[in-house]
Design a protein around this nucleic acid. Sequence first.
DNA 1: CGTGTTCTTGATGCCTTTCAAAAAGGGTGG
DNA 2: CCACCCTTTTTGAAAGGCATCAAGAACACG
Lengths: 252, 252
Amino acid sequence: MTESAPSNGRNSVPCMTCPLRAKPAFKDKSDDEIRFIQSMKIEHRHRPAGADIIHPGQEDAELYTLFSGWAFRYQLLPDGRRQILNFLLPGDLVGLQASLLSAAQHGIEALTEVELCVFPRKRVWDLFVHMPAMAYEVAWLGSREESLIDQNLTSVGQRNAGERIAALVISLYRRAETLGLVSESSFRFPLSQQQLADALGLSLVHTSKTWSRLRKAGLFTTSEGRLTLLNPRLTSRMALLYEREVAPRPLI
Amino acid sequence: MTESAPSNGRNSVPCMTCPLRAKPAFKDKSDDEIRFIQSMKIEHRHRPAGADIIHPGQEDAELYTLFSGWAFRYQLLPDGRRQILNFLLPGDLVGLQASLLSAAQHGIEALTEVELCVFPRKRVWDLFVHMPAMAYEVAWLGSREESLIDQNLTSVGQRNAGERIAALVISLYRRAETLGLVSESSFRFPLSQQQLADALGLSLVHTSKTWSRLRKAGLFTTSEGRLTLLNPRLTSRMALLYEREVAPRPLI
DNA sequence: CGTGTTCTTGATGCCTTTCAAAAAGGGTGG
DNA sequence: CCACCCTTTTTGAAAGGCATCAAGAACACG
């Protein structure tokens, strides 16, 4: 699960013409800033689904931006139980916590095949010294991730099984939407039921039963690894989720 | 709950002689840095137990360092359910997420009477421009808080009631210990059972029953708002908690 | 010493877990 | 293209953990 796929050359995806930047999720950046980002990027790396991006306890984790694909952050208990902490979608910063704390308390795994923009962790410090505006944005992205985890914690602590599933589906749907990944209410949904269960803090069996109950209730359908949200109103009502829309975020 | 207690003057607690700094929890700082912190601090504020420090949705939250007392961060669902996200102890930065994202998705409430060092949020930006080392430390503290929430999420998602309580007690004990708040295995423990329940994602009744079961099992005792950890080994074994000790952290 | 809050305890029911096994996919080699 | 194996998903049945309801006990406060 850890062998590395061959990676393209450094400039295979120039930041200046990065297709992600055009998405509504992201703030505009000046050419100067984009050039600086380009200068920090040392590799464009491909990894297969299931690959470890950061393994638990790793001390020299690099900083990444997820260019394409999905990943997730997780934590293990000594007896093997796993909690999925949050999901990472294109444009998300990967490994900031590990970079700053210099000993990952968590692992990060590729959920699908992914492409990663690789930044050496040492340059994070340069960023703070030379590009305070971008350092501020990095901190901002860190706070945004914390905010996502807050919501997951609230979900797992307070919502029942059906509400948790509804909240997760809505929240992933909205994130995918700002990335232009949704068409006709449908988007790629690569989670296995075991991964769903680990994210929701539920057992596999109960996740499966509740999942199919919500499908039969007409909230959404799945086929060929895609999810179609049939009844967004009902789903967000069941999720008790009325969060305000987030402003465009920086893309590093 | 929101009336403000009279606050002392600006220099009532000079940063240069801040008693917190001597605690093992914190890194040493240069006199220059401490003077800079002093120059950012505009107020030393007292608030009573139960006071709102940041209310949900607030857009102009200041940045604080908790000087004394306990607080907690929480999130509400529209139907009134409350999840306590994490607890704040002396030396913790309060309101960083709210300052950066400029719209608090959460609330922060004083659990006991507290003293707060107040920093205007606008100066956070100055910090990034003029004191990159301290900006880096602020980001570091943000990541540390995220790491604490990761652990709470893992607890609520994967541990049963007894394990959750054990994990919470151990984790608060260790934090109090690095602050010099523990003597003879005992420290102030100001949480009500309702607050415990909201932090653990359990009902009040079940929290009470499990809590007293663990007391009867000899893990710990409580009296007069203090908790005494009688059997740390058993407690941390029950909690499945073997986290490595954290390095000293910056105190802003 | 009354009154409101917090804590405790018992009883009941349901949501969720666990155990078990069948069904459905997915990939590989013949 | 089909047989075969392995993983993932689904379903059923039983047990248990946790929530809810209810009310008494302990505690704090003016």
